[in-house]
Design a protein around this nucleic acid. Sequence first.
DNA 1: TGGCCGTATGGCAAATTTACCAACAATCCT
DNA 2: AGGATTGTTGGTAAATTTGCCATACGGCCA
Lengths: 111, 111
Amino acid sequence: MYGAIEMKSREKYKARAKIIKALAHPSRLMMIDSLSEGEKCVCELRDLVGSDISTVSKHLALMKEAGLVEDRKAGQQVYYKLRVPCIMNFFSCIEAVMESKAREQMSLVDK
Amino acid sequence: MYGAIEMKSREKYKARAKIIKALAHPSRLMMIDSLSEGEKCVCELRDLVGSDISTVSKHLALMKEAGLVEDRKAGQQVYYKLRVPCIMNFFSCIEAVMESKAREQMSLVDK
DNA sequence: TGGCCGTATGGCAAATTTACCAACAATCCT
DNA sequence: AGGATTGTTGGTAAATTTGCCATACGGCCA
């Protein structure tokens, strides 16, 4: 019985990790930041990150698969938007980590 | 001038991505969850995740380098603890993404 | 209909990540 | 000092991720 619970727990963390991985790339973070302003078409996002459009498309597919974004086709274009706005709360904490790290570096210099 | 700003922005996202990557692994998420209860020694974390201790040590080194955790040596043991508690806020949003995704799946079935 | 435009997908090479084993370092205990 | 315990580091093979090219697909317009 314990094995089953253990397994379940491991699966839970794996599922969480998948979502976090979908955030863990500079281009994808850039796109998410941009999408927080509202939906954008693929070509706009390509201009933003400056990669090949096939690369951008794959980043978006990955985020969609993770549940971070959803898409909507309109004519020849595909628009993407954020699915769960709370994602944006991440960034303030990330900044806090960076500041905390910076202060640590400072204190090492001061010694 | 624009080039410099662009560069800076890219660096910023890269720095953020590094921190998020440090979270993006099932074992590391498991450890962070555990560390939210208080500091733990490496051997406790190894028992938790069930990997070789060298593997666990490397996961911890990576999280330390990212600024997520800090360590403290006491006798033969090394204790790790969370550096920035707000990390725990991540999880509620991650759950929200998972629920949102689940509801989407449901609605597809219903059709 | 034929051709263009905006995206997606298959394929592949390069880069990165991960996990284990071995070897080493530091601390404790006898 | 010698041995046991706890962690870290180097090395390496396997797995995963990334990015581009070429190609395919679907909608629009002449």
